Computed example of a mutant assay.
Amino acid sequence: MNRVAILTECKPYNPNRTFTEQLNSVGGNTGNNAYITALMDIFSAARVDYELLDKTLEDDEYDVYIVGNLSWIVEDTPLPDFYYDAFRKITNKGKKFVPISVGTQVFDYKADFKYDPTTLSFLKEISEQAVIACRGEYTAELLSKNGVKNVEVIGCPSLFHTKDPNFKLSKRNYLRKNPRIATGITPWPNEKMSTSLVKEYLGYAIRNKIDFIEQADNSWIEFLSETDKSFKGLFHTYFKQFGKMFFDIEEWRVYSRELDFSFSGRFHGNVIPLLEGVPSLFISIDARTKEMCEYFKFPTIDIQEFCFDKTLEELYEMADYTEFNKSYSGAFIKFENYVEKNNLKIVK
């Protein structure tokens, strides 16, 4: 069996770090932990920091290097140099460079999305030695249209952390009295999302006393409250009581098991509860989220269509997992087939 490494800048959890150090250790997004720990568990893979790549290659420790940081490809913007450097070093040693969960960062589906020429050439070169895994049909179609043909849609591998093709989500017919509910949102991935809309969303959470799961630097709150100091005070008071942030993935899972319901504009803010059996309603805030929700057939609302007059019970009713339950095994089998094509194996 091939020896597998996850190439990442994210560090293992250490409770002794400062808040800033913790945030840096997860690449600025705690959701990265869900993705990385899933890949490590699925493939029994080691975590390798980019800074240690030269040594691991010199010591011939691994055969396949999985890269996940290509999920945020921005229009007409080159990738950081370290991706190219890592690819050259890995392939020059006869090892495999496998990008899993390649995605496109844009606020809505854009047919004429333009890749930076160096990024496009790089993706074509990658596809000559590995099958590129895409987050959704939109990214796969864009790549194919631009000449990158060796691609497959597998969604986000964090959904396969169950390692169970028969995984299904069941829910009560009703939301129990005094439920514990979590939500979350970060507006910066969608430049078209209005300040007033984000404030409405947060206001809904505040009125209903819902836990708020933050996954990134919340400096965007400062931006939202530049002209509304009362909002800033209201949110900070709310966040002190209901705010949560998890740098330890196991702590996040344990917390999620206590929830009755989750609805979130952060993808992994819903995936973690979902994998713990909690009904989750996905709030689509950009194309990157939208294509994954469509692929997995999650119950989803576009943020622009969120009705703030709905009760929590009505939102709960919208979390219908009939289609997800029907399609999950097929998605899992497709993931298994993709894995085999890249000389990988799911370790059960």
Score class of each variant (00 low, 15 high):
D85P: 00
W220E: 09
I333M: 07
L169G: 08
W72N: 14
G147E: 10
F167Y: 15
K244P: 03
T322W: 00
V271P: 04
R3I: 02
N218V: 13
R180A: 11
G269A: 04
V102W: 10
D211W: 13
V131H: 04
G136E: 06
E214N: 07
V151T: 15
V4N: 05
S158E: 10
E191K: 07
H161F: 13
K11A: 08
E317F: 08
F306D: 11
G155L: 01
E21V: 09
L274S: 05
L275V: 00
E305N: 15
E75P: 09
N218D: 04
S225D: 12
N270A: 12
F235H: 08
I283Y: 03
L169I: 15
A133H: 05
G147H: 10
L315Y: 15
N2T: 13
K199E: 05
E21W: 10
V106P: 00
G68K: 06
S127W: 02
T8P: 07
F267W: 10
E51P: 00
D41I: 00
S71C: 14
F107P: 15
I301Y: 14
P273M: 08
E152M: 15
A140M: 10
N92I: 01
S256H: 12
A182G: 02
G136K: 11
V131S: 05
A331D: 14
V278R: 07
S121P: 00
D54R: 04
Y316P: 04
I181Y: 10
L39V: 11
